[in-house]
């Protein structure tokens, strides 16, 4: 009896100390994520404005109804999904190529790794500005090179025209996120049994067949998880679009739309409703992701 109570006392003490260690982290998460998130959902049912946050009135689901009626919102939804649907597969393919290169042991691999990380580390705003300069319709190097190679007859308005501007956004996004994709795929490749690769190499099976018959099937779980991971990230794209579409609402994404209404038009209620909808989209994607998450948590044990 006595031993038992001592044991449980010790258990309580140890579990208490666990939570003591976790407390600062949980506090930060609650203050920075939990509470603001709840407030945003709350605001989305009110007519709050930036000047008048506290004394707002509850207006039910009016914001959401107005949102559903707004053509611009649906354009933003469409743009966001176009960006995700084109950019994620593209960067998976490119990332795969880079990962295959980095997986090989060769002279200068360290340098190659550093080079590949460069687009990832450059601040998004800097990338956007750099590419905006390169894609400038009158003086940009891209048009110049394309003209010289006579692939086009007249300069393409990469930034100014709506449809081309969306292409530019996707182009820069792919450029920027390929390194991260490559690293995820590389990590997956390195956790596979290496003898498979070696055996295939010894049998001198051509690279393409090796890719289709060995690497891709083995790597499929990693590829799926990495793609969902990136899709979750791409849905909330903001920085690139903000700079490259230069305030043109025809190219806005959901994040840009929500912020515009929230801050520029000071309509906190309506902006929050848009942000809440974006969150729902992500939760929906996250539900698809959930089975993979469970696996990840199991890996932790």
């Amino acid at each position: 009896m006595k031993r038992q109570s001592m044991k449980s006392k010790r258990q309580i003490k140890s579990s208490l100390s666990n939570w003591l260690f976790l407390a600062p982290c949980l506090f930060v998460l609650a203050v920075c994520a939990g509470w603001p998130l709840l407030r945003t959902v709350f605001f989305s049912f009110t007519d709050a404005t930036l000047e008048n946050l506290r004394e707002s009135n509850f207006i039910g689901i009016d914001n959401f109804i107005n949102l559903a009626r707004d053509q611009e919102w649906w354009q933003a939804v469409l743009n966001t999904f176009l960006i995700v649907a084109v950019s994620v597969p593209l960067e998976t393919v490119l990332g795969m190529i880079v990962a295959l290169i980095l997986h090989r042991n060769f002279r200068g691999r360290g340098w190659m790794r550093a080079i590949v990380l460069v687009p990832w580390v450059i601040p998004t705003i800097v990338s956007a500005r750099m590419w905006a300069w390169m894609l400038n319709d009158a003086y940009g190097i891209v048009n110049e090179l394309l003209l010289k190679a006579s692939l086009i007859n007249e300069p393409i308005p990469w930034i100014a025209s709506n449809s081309f501007s969306l292409i530019s956004i996707i182009l820069v996004d792919v450029w920027k996120t390929t390194p991260y994709m490559a690293l995820l795929l590389l990590a997956g490749m390195q956790s596979l049994p290496q003898d498979c690769f070696e055996a295939a190499e010894v049998d001198s099976i051509p690279l393409f067949q090796r890719l289709m018959k060995i690497i891709l099937p083995l790597l499929k779980p990693t590829i799926i998880v990495a793609m969902i991971f990136r899709a979750l990230d791409a849905v909330r794209i903001f920085d690139l679009v903000y700079v490259l579409s230069s305030g043109n609402s025809a190219n806005a994404t959901m994040s840009v739309y929500a912020r515009k209404h929230l801050v520029d038009y000071a309509d906190v209620g309506y902006g929050s409703a848009a942000a809440t909808m974006l969150m729902f989209f992500i939760v929906f994607l996250g539900v698809i992701y959930a089975p993979f998450n469970r696996k990840k948590l199991q890996n932790l044990d």
Partner: peptide, 11 residues
């Protein structure tokens, strides 16, 4: 995975 714009007004 939270969209940052979703905590904007609360923050």
């Amino acid at each position: 995975t939270l969209p940052h714009v979703a905590v904007l007004s609360g923050m």
